[in-house]
Amino acid sequence: MAKDYCVLGIESSCDETGVALVQVTDQRLPVLLAHALYSQIEMHQAYGGVVPELASRDHIRRVLPLTTEVMSASGKSLSDVDVVAFTRGPGLAGALLVGAGVACALGAALGKPVLGVHHLEGHLLSPFLSNDPPEFPFVALLVSGGHTQLMRVDGVGCYQVLGETIDDAAGEAFDKSAKLLGLGYPGGSALSELAEMGNSAAYKLPRPLLHSGDLDFSFAGLKTAVMVQAKKCAMAQGCAVEALPHVVLADLASSTQAAIVEVLVKKSLAALMRTQLKRLVVAGGVGANRDLRAQLNAECKKRQVCVHYPELHLCTDNGAMIAMAAAMRLQSGIQIPSEVYAFDVKPRWPLDAIQAVDA
């Protein structure tokens, strides 16, 4: 690759369509030139969750207009694109195929190579887009959708899993608990907003695996405990769970959030102690949670540990993280883009299974 080149990134793994353009120069880190994002939340709200077929069709409608928007905002043209990157997995198979198909078609039309990116690697490296980028090595708390993992990160492509969820992830615990409380979709953000109005000590909920001695997570039992407590409250009030007084729902939400956050914080601190590293990166949608950030900031300050997050608007799925991950893999020399446009996708793809060179 030349020293100065542009990478176009396309994200379509679930219910957000994201496109972004980054530029790689002699500078230490690639630079984000422009990005655009379309969320399908409103469309899926009527169904209480993501409908894969609808998600795939909507990606088809959105990806090219978003690409045009990004190129216009960046002041570049498609002829300036040197590599087209796309989310190869994990995610919804149909949704992934849309992004992969468009990326490979663009690459073939432009005569430029393509590169498939791991969705979670995009999240993991997204803090490098922030105004306070981390340095290697670090411990990473990856909390995105159905994934909760602690990893030791020694460089791009050098990932060691320290602990991971054995059932429900933190994001699923937020979403499923919110659904039990009748908060609708998307549940996680609704529960977090309601939690700010409640008393986090109102109900004693379990902290699964908090004292297990390892770095694994389990949130399925917490979801069950929330359901049991909500039914007890509803029985006492003589109403359905959804009809509970606002103050009761707020206390339930706050107590639920407190349980999830305490586990995430203490396991992260344990990972730092075990690895003896002094840098923590938090990435993924749950990383935007205010209570989680506040507690991690306070605890890391006590221990003289630097903690880094992506910008709030880049915590959700987005094209910028895909373009950035691709650019960093190219810049580090551990992967070369492919000029073969026969693509496949990997709906299930463990992050620690990434090879140094994975064409």
Rank of each mutant, 00 (worst) to 15 (best):
T275H: 00
D82N: 14
E311F: 04
E11N: 07
G89V: 01
G213S: 10
L33V: 08
D168K: 02
T224D: 04
R279Y: 00
A236L: 13
C315E: 07
E299Q: 15
A55L: 05
K3V: 10
I10R: 08
L97H: 09
V63M: 02
S200G: 07
S77E: 12
L21C: 01
S332A: 11
P208V: 02
H119S: 09
V63P: 11
P337W: 01
E311A: 15
G75I: 05
I41K: 12
G198H: 13
V357S: 11
C14W: 05
L180T: 00
G9V: 07
P52C: 08
Q23I: 11
S13H: 05
M1G: 12
H211K: 13
V31K: 15
L312R: 15
L129F: 12
L97W: 10
Q304Y: 05
V156H: 03
V22C: 03
P134E: 01
L314W: 06
A294W: 12
L150P: 03
G284F: 02
G187Y: 01
S74R: 04
L330A: 06
N199E: 14
G18C: 11
V19M: 06
R303D: 00
R293S: 08
C158L: 13
V248Y: 00
L162I: 00
P206T: 08
M324K: 03
Y5F: 15
H313C: 12
N199D: 15
C233M: 13
R348K: 07
G198F: 04
G107Q: 11
S338K: 01
F128D: 10
K112T: 07
Q355G: 12
D317Q: 11
L249Y: 03
A236N: 14
P310T: 14
G99Q: 06
A320H: 10
V98M: 05
P127K: 08
G9E: 03
L314I: 10
A288S: 15
A326H: 04
L33W: 09
A271F: 00
L129M: 14
V143H: 05
D15S: 11
L129I: 06
V31I: 13
E16C: 10
T316D: 14
K231T: 08
